[in-house]
Amino acid sequence: MIMDSEILPQAGAIAEVAARIADAPDIAALAACAAEARQVAIALQHESAGSALVTRVLSRLNDAVATRVLVLLALRFRLPPARWCWLGLGSEGRLEQTLATDQDNGLVFSASDDGEARQLRELFLPFARAANQALAECGFSLCDGEVMAGNPRWCLSQSEWLENFAAWVRTPEPEALLNAAIFFDFRPLAGDAGLSAELRRALSELTRGNEIFLRMMTVNALAASPPLGRLRDFVTEAEAGGTIDLKKFGSRIFVDAARILALGTGIAETATAPRLRRVALEGEMTPADAEAAVHAFHALQDIRLAGQTGGGLAGQAPANHVDPERLNEFDRRILLEALRQARKLQQKLKTRFHLET
């Protein structure tokens, strides 16, 4: 007889944690559940489940924690009778959370005009701030950049969100491009998902085929290049103890490229691997190149997770840093090839948007 655990590692533990999250009576109980979810992710990583599964399971369990937080808090606050939706942003929006993550979220609500939007925002903000604090108690640290629903800048009516989106696309200055990289990976977590779907459709209309905006996004993305050397395999950061930041100079390259190509073709997907596969179907790259990029992205995520879970692949201090010299020969070769794929993907972007090579 085939057991569930033979098909999906930690299947029983995942189901048990999910059930406890759904029944959690208060924030303290949810904090304990969130800690259990992280332990499940660590166990999956130690069982070599692969980063695609580990990050997706962890992200879904984190989703459940956030949703339960919002349900519990909605009972304590007198929320207005307006449509609203809590948005997950960044890695949460992409279902790619690792163990080193903070909060990136926003809130969208419906309002008939600017005056009603101001009134509703004042009613939603105490709820949103309480949710941000509760999530922090559950282990999701507050965002240093204050990209959170409790910030009035990111607790907006649907019209206000659309005004921001349009401004960022039409005037792609550095701050606008940074905002686009964070906010355009949004995904609904709780409330009326229809609001999120309407935002996504409107955003697609703004970005599909918008060569000027996409070119500027590409220029911004190319600022982070793979740390590959000419005389030696890797270029490391001396100030970081001879390590490589695999988030900034590794996985981010694939995330950025997938986002740019997806926005350009109107693809609604937010996760990196599905985006790459979808853009291949749209003819933006060959299926073989897309699969190579997907495998390289997952390999980098595997190495990041191994460091975060104490897998012994690296002896780095910061959670996303790895010392190539501490990798075994096999993992070092994988890292090298994954970064070469990152360089190839960036070359694809340069060619696509007619940038100097």
Rank of each mutant, 00 (worst) to 15 (best):
M1K: 09
M1T: 14
M1P: 14
I2C: 06
D4I: 09
E6D: 15
I7Q: 07
P9F: 04
A15C: 13
A15R: 14
A19Y: 01
R20L: 06
R20N: 06
A24R: 02
P25F: 04
P25H: 09
P25N: 02
A28V: 11
L30R: 09
A31R: 07
A32V: 05
A34E: 06
Q39A: 13
A41S: 10
A43N: 09
G50I: 14
S51A: 15
S51Y: 05
V57P: 02
L61Q: 03
D63F: 03
V65C: 08
L70F: 01
V71I: 07
L75T: 02
P80C: 03
W84V: 06
L89M: 10
G90F: 08
S91P: 02
E92D: 09
E92G: 08
G93T: 09
G93N: 06
L95R: 03
L95D: 12
E96S: 08
E96A: 04
T98W: 00
L99W: 06
Q103A: 04
D104Y: 00
G106V: 12
G106H: 07
V108D: 12
S112D: 15
G115L: 06
F124C: 02
F127G: 00
A128E: 03
A131R: 01
N132Q: 10
E137P: 06
S141M: 12
S141Y: 10
E146M: 14
G150Y: 02
N151Q: 12
N151A: 04
R153T: 14
C155S: 10
S157G: 15
E160Y: 00
E163S: 13
V169R: 01
T171Q: 15
E173V: 11
E175R: 15
A176M: 08
L178P: 01
L178C: 05
D185N: 00
S196F: 14
A197G: 09
A197Y: 11
R200A: 14
R201G: 08
S204F: 08
R208L: 10
F213S: 06
L214V: 05
L214M: 06
L214T: 10
A221C: 00
P226N: 05
L228E: 06
L228I: 14
L231H: 10
L231Y: 04
R232C: 10
F234N: 05
T236E: 00
A240P: 11
G241R: 03
I244Q: 04
L246E: 02
G250S: 03
F254M: 05
D256G: 03
D256I: 02
R259P: 09
I267Y: 11
T270R: 10
A271I: 09
V279H: 04
A280I: 07
M285I: 04
T286A: 13
A288I: 08
D289T: 10
D289P: 01
A292M: 05
V294T: 11
V294N: 03
H295Q: 15
A299C: 14
A299G: 07
Q308G: 02
G312Q: 02
L313N: 12
L313S: 08
A314T: 15
G315K: 03
N320T: 12
L327A: 10
F330N: 11
F330D: 13
A338I: 12
R340C: 05
K344F: 01
K348C: 04
T351N: 00
F353M: 09
T357L: 12
